[in-house]
């Protein structure tokens, strides 16, 4: 039984189709990269997964629960920017991952002390312990995204959604972030959906790469048809699917 089931999903804004007939099943723990040209509904797809929007037709189910009506604890999200709370310090941002579900959005007494200890452990793990008391605006882009991912993971979501998380970072920082994300994934075994523009990144990190494109195209009215998943690559084992390599083949080494 698949973990995330997307069944015959259509999404239309004001009669303008964005997504058509999207079907995909994802197992728990898979890393899904989502690529495609601009305006091909990648971000819409992510918003549907997040339950920020409801599909016009079809449904998105996670772990066989009924379709969610609004974003909740089971889905974590990291956007390209504005992903951390600017008015909270780095440590408070991490604690927010635990405290926001409570009635006052704060923790008190022993609970707070425990959360502080855990937050400091998390900060060490994501390499931000030296800036725990700084405000996010003073951090670099890469550090802010590390914080955003750490914050999302503290809430222990069942799936993690990344919307072009490294799009605004320089190439060197981006490579560090890849290592960071791969380590975190190895630790948590979480199901991840990542929208990206960078194909190399998509194949490097993903178990599967979903390509969004418009299967039909009317040159007189490009917005007439919506996009769907046109390719679903298995990106494991260096992109050679359905086989576990036993010997060194000297082909397709990822950098």
């Amino acid at each position: 039984m698949s973990f995330v089931t997307i069944e015959n999903v259509f999404q239309t804004y004001d009669d303008r189709p964005i997504l058509e007939r999207v079907n995909v099943e994802v197992d728990e723990g898979q890393f899904m990269s989502v690529v495609g040209a601009s305006g091909c509904g990648k971000s819409t797809f992510l918003r549907l997964l997040l339950a920020q929007e409801q599909p016009t037709r079809g449904q998105v189910r996670v772990a066989d629960a009924p379709p969610a009506m609004e974003p909740g604890l089971d889905r974590g999200i990291v956007f390209q920017k504005y992903s951390v709370f600017p008015h909270l310090t780095v440590r408070e941002n991490i604690i927010a991952g635990e405290s926001f579900r409570h009635r006052w959005g704060r923790l008190f007494g022993a609970e707070r002390r425990d959360a502080l200890t855990r937050a400091d452990e998390t900060l060490v793990r994501i390499g931000l312990d030296h800036v725990a008391d700084a405000y996010p605006a003073t951090l670099s882009g890469g550090m802010q995204q590390r914080l955003a991912i750490g914050q999302a993971l503290v809430a222990k979501p069942r799936i993690l959604l990344l919307d072009e998380p490294f799009g605004a970072l320089d190439p060197g920082t981006r490579l560090n972030m890849h290592d960071f994300l791969q380590n975190l994934r190895a630790e948590t075994g979480m199901t991840v959906f990542m929208v990206t523009h960078d194909l190399e990144e998509a194949f490097k990190l993903g178990d599967r790469v979903l390509v969004f494109d418009k299967p039909r195209w009317d040159p007189n009215d490009p917005t007439l048809y919506g996009a769907t998943i046109t390719y679903d690559f298995d990106a494991r084992d260096g992109g050679i699917p359905f086989q576990t390599l036993k010997e060194e083949t000297h082909v397709l080494h990822s950098a």
Partner: peptide, 17 residues
């Protein structure tokens, strides 16, 4: 930014929080 409100929701925050 809408992103912050969505993020807070994914952390389990109610409208009040």
């Amino acid at each position: 930014p809408q992103e912050l409100l969505v993020k807070a929701q994914t952390l389990g925050a109610s409208s009040w929080v």
